[in-house]
């Protein structure tokens, strides 16, 4: 028996003399293909932003260019009289900048107040119907934005007229429309944050004499700090870009419920492309600032 099995093994064993050495094919095509695809997308993003910027400097009103000094220094004139400056001096646009900043900040804070408990509960507890509830919190992410706005509008048809008049097409509608969508993103981020935090530390805190609230405040929250910052800035950025629900639920009344994204739409609709691009650039700068904040102080482990 023993000799037989030995023979078998010898037969099946690869023979280094007769088997040619296995040659591994080059890695180069793999790297080239992936880098090309990544590079193309990166280029598309950068060129898009660059086009916005260059368009803005081309767009100058003829009367400005007819000044003596601006004929002598056309480039200087283009920089001084750029549409961003013009947009910033427009009182309607000033109002929409202020409203955007204030409403986005309120939305981000409200989102955190809701997302921290929701994220914690989803991360730490098992309960009946959890998958369903988890999916419900995703609704604002997957729903078409216009439908979110329409649903809010319909919801408030059932509200008492006193409340409806205070909210629909008024300032509270701006924050509410932003909040419904932005909060869902904050919830995702907070849940991922708490998932990454080891539960044993909370458990130790409980044995040390803390109750759940103390353990949460002293141990969990400090560890979640960068995640909270990420969730807050993400919610802020989402709120800034919110448009569909706003248009339906809050309207686009100049100087009342007009935020930056509405301004872009209003300027475009009257054919004022220069101003639309200028306001877009203001929003791009705000978004870039938020990105830098996330990258610098937020956690790298969270992606969305």
């Amino acid at each position: 028996m023993k000799t037989l099995s030995n023979n078998d093994e010898q037969k099946n064993a690869p023979n280094p003399q007769t088997n040619p050495a296995h040659k591994v094919r080059s890695d180069r095509p793999f790297h080239i293909a992936f880098i090309l695809i990544a590079g193309t997308y990166l280029l598309l993003l950068l060129v898009m932003l660059l086009a916005d910027a260059s368009y803005m400097f081309q767009e100058n009103s003829p009367e400005v260019l007819s000044h003596d000094w601006s004929i002598a220094h056309p480039w200087l004139a283009r920089i001084v009289n750029n549409p961003i400056g013009a947009a910033l001096s427009d009182s309607n646009i000033q109002y929409s900048i202020v409203l955007s900043l204030v409403s986005c900040t309120i939305t981000a804070m409200l989102s955190l107040v809701v997302a921290i408990p929701v994220g914690y509960l989803l991360s730490r507890h098992q309960f009946f119907g959890k998958n369903l509830i988890d999916a419900i919190f995703d609704i604002p992410i997957v729903l078409p934005p216009l439908v979110v706005g329409l649903s809010l509008l319909i919801l408030f048809q059932y509200a008492p007229p006193v409340i409806r008049e205070q909210v629909v097409y008024q300032l509270p509608a701006v924050v509410l429309a932003q909040f419904v969508v932005a909060c869902a993103f904050a919830v995702r981020t907070m849940r991922a944050t708490f998932d990454l935090i080891d539960t044993r530390r909370e458990k130790v805190a409980l044995t040390l004499g803390c109750n759940k609230a103390q353990a949460f405040r002293l141990v969990v929250l400090p560890e979640a700090k960068s995640g909270i910052l990420t969730a807050g800035t993400l919610a802020w950025a989402r709120a800034l870009g919110e448009f569909g629900p706003l248009l339906v639920f809050a309207g686009a009344t100049r100087g009342k419920t007009e935020v930056l994204s509405t301004t872009v739409f209003l300027e475009l609709s009257v054919g004022n492309l220069g101003a639309a691009v200028a306001v877009s650039l203001i929003m791009i700068m705000a978004a870039a600032t938020v990105l830098i904040i996330i990258r610098t102080w937020g956690t790298n482990k969270l992606t969305l």
């Binding site: 080891d198 044993r200 530390r201 458990k203 130790v204 805190a205 409980l206 044995t207 040390l208 004499g209 803390c210 109750n211 002293l218 141990v219 400090p222 560890e223 700090k225």
Partner: peptide, 19 residues
Amino acid sequence: RPGERNIGYVPQDGALFPN
């Protein structure tokens, strides 16, 4: 409750609070 049992717990690899 855990905090009322008067028990000291040292988990595997310490689980210290990073902050």
